[in-house]
Design a protein around this nucleic acid. Structure first.
Length: 420
RNA sequence: GCCCCCAUCGACUAGCGGCCCAGGUCACAGCCCUUUCAAGGCUGUAGCGCGGGUUCGAAUCCCGCUGGGGGCACCA
């Protein structure tokens, strides 16, 4: 039997990171099994926002590299099927009318249970389950009816969803049974919590895929991090590429307990993946990010500046902080009292450097420090501040090379004038 | 109130009866490296919720408690 799963977001707005995690589990599991992934938008209401949210969801999934098969489906499309099945259940005495709506007749005795891939055996006493409405008075199916009907019609083999659905599962199992359908395998993934132990929400910070994108996180890191939330391969591996995840992920190794979303660890992981990109790829990401952020900096210069900060930043949105001085006029943010002599000599020394490249530049400046009997850091810091405007910058020599001789000398002179 | 789920360092987790006086990672602290910031290297602080069992032996199995969370809609 070939595997088929479905990702079923409700089109209420941005794609929440918690949903993404369960989608990722669906995707990883199905893809490694050579199975199919369906994208089904679950909303029995037609609202004005649906179209927009649906687009948004797809954009976010594509950005993450989570793909799906076939066209996007909508729960709404199966409304007539649901109505037909509801009527059939009434005819068979398995459901009944109640004030215009149709209720499903739940058994009063015994238990309904299943073997959850993540949790093991789960069992619920039938007497605790009410006869639920499956068709509203206006004819629209309710979620707990539309959902299993869709799963049945779509021939879903594995339902991997959030643990908040655990209490829905026995209901859906009963409906499936009444419909004569074979039950899919269920796996209920744990929740993703905020630092306060409550379900992740706006007040915890970024929560939609868009938010993370905007904050300079890259898909590789987000996917890696999300996969590790509730799952581990062994006792030591933290960093995974997408392919490694596809190779090692195991649904039955997902922990049943909820996990706290640790932004700091995500950020660390983002830095790791940023550093793992090839220089060209890294430059591409930076260019793209800056463009999306609306910063119109010269692309060629951005590409040349990129390698200078690949080792230094953890998030793409930090790029401008390190490289602004290449693109804009800078004023030393720190006083340069007493630095006059160093700056003057640096100016003279650099004026003679040819070719104007990092290596000879470094040689000259180190020689200068020796002459002045200054420690390297003492000599370089004022130069750094004069040239980059900041105490923190990419490598000084590479920066000076990229900035060019004319501009470097100009800044040195300007700073010297200010320091005097 | 009823039903269900969960429980190892601050966080993510490894552990599935002896290999564990509990290992890795993030964060934190110190040291090293060093042109700043990073990266990297080394070291350290820190945990099996509690109480009963079972067993020669329990973080690991069972029961109870406590504490978290979810659900009980003509919402999804």
């Amino acid at each position: 039997m070939s595997v088929r799963v479905r990702m079923a977001p409700s089109p209420t707005g941005m794609l929440h990171i918690g949903s993404v995690r369960t989608f990722l589990f669906n995707w990883l599991f199905a893809r490694q099994q050579g199975g199919e992934v369906l994208l089904r938008i679950e909303n029995t209401d037609t609202s004005r926002e649906v179209e927009e949210a649906t687009e948004q969801i797809q954009r976010s999934l594509r950005w993450l590299g989570i793909d799906w098969d076939g066209p996007v489906r909508f729960q709404l499309d199966r409304m007539e099927d649901a109505q037909r099945f509801a009527r059939q259940l009434v005819d068979e005495g398995k459901a009944y009318e109640d004030e215009g709506a149709i209720r499903f007749r739940m058994p009063d005795e015994g238990t309904t249970g299943w073997v959850d891939v993540i949790r093991g055996r789960v069992e619920v006493p039938n007497e605790s389950i009410e006869d639920l409405v499956i068709l509203r008075a206006d004819g629209r199916p309710t979620y707990n009816f539309a959902n299993p009907v869709d799963d049945m019609l779509d021939e879903i083999t594995h339902v991997i969803r959030g643990q908040d659905h655990i209490s829905n599962t026995p209901k859906q199992l009963q409906i499936l049974h009444a419909l004569g359908a074979e039950a899919p395998v269920y796996a209920h993934a744990p929740d993703v919590l905020g630092t306060d132990g409550k379900k992740l929400s706006k007040r915890h910070g970024a929560q939609s895929v868009e938010d993370f994108h905007r904050e300079g996180y890259i898909p590789e890191a987000l996917v890696n991090f999300l996969a590790r939330l509730g799952w581990a391969y062994d006792d030591k591996t933290e960093v995974f590429t997408r392919d490694e995840l596809l190779e090692h992920f195991r649904l039955d190794r997902v922990t049943p307990s909820p996990a706290v979303f640790d932004y700091q660890k995500l950020t660390w992981l983002n830095g790791v993946h940023l550093r793992n990109l090839t220089p060209d790829e890294y430059a591409d990401r930076v260019v793209q990010y800056l463009r999306e952020a609306g910063l119109e900096w010269d692309e060629e210069l951005v590409r040349r500046a990129a390698p200078l900060v690949q080792e230094k930043i953890e998030r793409l949105d930090h790029f401008p902080d390190y490289t602004r001085f290449f693109f804009e006029e800078v004023k030393p943010a720190v006083p340069l009292d007493g630095a006059g002599p160093v700056l003057e000599q640096a100016e003279a020394a650099l004026a003679a450097v040819e070719p104007f490249e990092a290596e000879p530049i470094e040689r000259e400046l180190r020689a200068l420090a020796d002459r002045l009997e200054l420690k390297p850091r003492e000599a370089f810091q004022p130069i750094r501040i004069a040239v980059t405007g900041s105490k923190v910058s990419p490598g000084l020599f590479e920066s000076i090379e990229l900035l060019g001789k004319d501009e470097t000398l100009r800044r040195l002179a300007a700073a010297r004038a200010g320091a005097a």
